Amino acid sequence: MRRVVLWVVGYGLVAALPCGCAGGGGDDGRAPGAPTGVTAEAGSTTSVHVMWNAVSANPSVSGYEVYRGGTKVGEVRGSAHMLDVVRLTPSTVYVFAVRARDAEGRLGPRSREVRATTPAAAAADRSAPTPPGEVTGRAAGSRAVQLSWTASTDDRKVVSYDVYQGGARIHSVGGAQTATVVTGLRPGTRYSFTVRARDAADNVSPAGPPVRLITAPGDDEGTDTAPAGFRAATRLADGAYYIDLSWVPPRVDGVVTEYQIQLDGQPATSLVWGGTPPRGKATYSFYAGPEAGVGHRVRLRARLPDGTWGAFSAEWAVTTGEHR
């Protein structure tokens, strides 16, 4: 199924409707698309943590290349969506972009550029932060877990927290953040997570207490991956009815840039933010037809940063011409 771009609305939002055309998207052997949801955040005075959303392609993505300005500075396998760029200079602004490469070696276009500034160098600092305390977690369905912890302390400042799955670091968040959602897990699987704090001098704390969790069996995605506060209403404009939607994006690591709207049990519209997507309340409106008294059921779900679809929001019933 191919998606055809119809129009662009607020926030650089691109709306696409499915059609029965042959080919299209990543299913016809073309190079993969540009990664979305790219972020960059300083991890220390000499490093920056770059993250991006997974790219869907056919053939599948085999790797990602990370660029600092016009220079390639790193490469990771297709299952990874993060890279620490190291050996940087303190108090410096850097620009990063990411490209996807498929299994046949084709490189897609560069993502939008993102900027990060490394902190200023300080006097010699050999004191690591204290370990994060009271680390807790819970399974959020079959493919995600939610973690939280008590903030670490440091004689200067905690710049970031590193999240480990077993012995492997899988993610970093800013020093002001004390909770995260890890997605892309397997159903019915036992996991162990720990958290470490990092300061500007790259001193890393001991690990906080481990959290051992088992994801739910099945494939329910977990309600925590669903958009929250979903609402729908109809309105009349220029002789036709429209359905107005509003919601809050799910709280997951990375940036949600794509949603799928389901109308009356069938996929109706895909929404892709070309610019910066809203972190808070999001809104969208689409055409429902000229007739009053027509009932519809509508809900939506987000494509998560790991490339999988999250759970659907609660379903909302509306009737054209009726007001709530």
Rank of each mutant, 00 (worst) to 15 (best):
G167S: 12
G167K: 02
G167L: 02
I170M: 08
H171Y: 12
G174L: 01
G175M: 06
T180H: 03
T180G: 00
V181M: 14
V182K: 03
G184W: 02
G184R: 04
T189H: 07
R190G: 05
S192D: 05
T194S: 11
V195N: 09
R196L: 04
A197I: 04
R198L: 09
R198H: 03
D199Y: 10
A201V: 08
A201F: 12
D202C: 03
V204H: 00
S205D: 05
P206T: 11
P206H: 01
P209H: 05
P210M: 00
I214A: 13
P217M: 10
G218P: 09
D219L: 03
D219P: 02
G222F: 02
G222L: 03
T223M: 04
T223S: 09
A226C: 10
A226E: 09
P227S: 09
P227M: 05
G229W: 02
F230I: 04
F230S: 06
A233E: 14
A233V: 03
R235L: 15
R235W: 08
D238S: 12
G239Q: 10
A240K: 15
Y241R: 00
Y241M: 01
Y242I: 00
I243N: 08
L245D: 08
S246D: 14
W247A: 04
V248E: 13
V252H: 06
D253W: 12
T257E: 13
E258K: 14
Q260K: 04
I261P: 08
I261C: 07
L263A: 08
T269N: 01
S270A: 13
L271C: 10
G274I: 02
G275K: 07
G275F: 05
T276K: 05
T276C: 01
R279Y: 00
T283H: 13
Y284W: 15
S285V: 12
S285E: 11
S285L: 05
S285T: 15
F286Y: 15
Y287G: 12
E291C: 00
E291K: 08
A292K: 06
G293N: 07
G293H: 06
G295S: 15
V298E: 05
V298S: 09
R299M: 10
L300Q: 07
L304C: 12
P305F: 01
T308E: 12
W309T: 02
A311G: 11
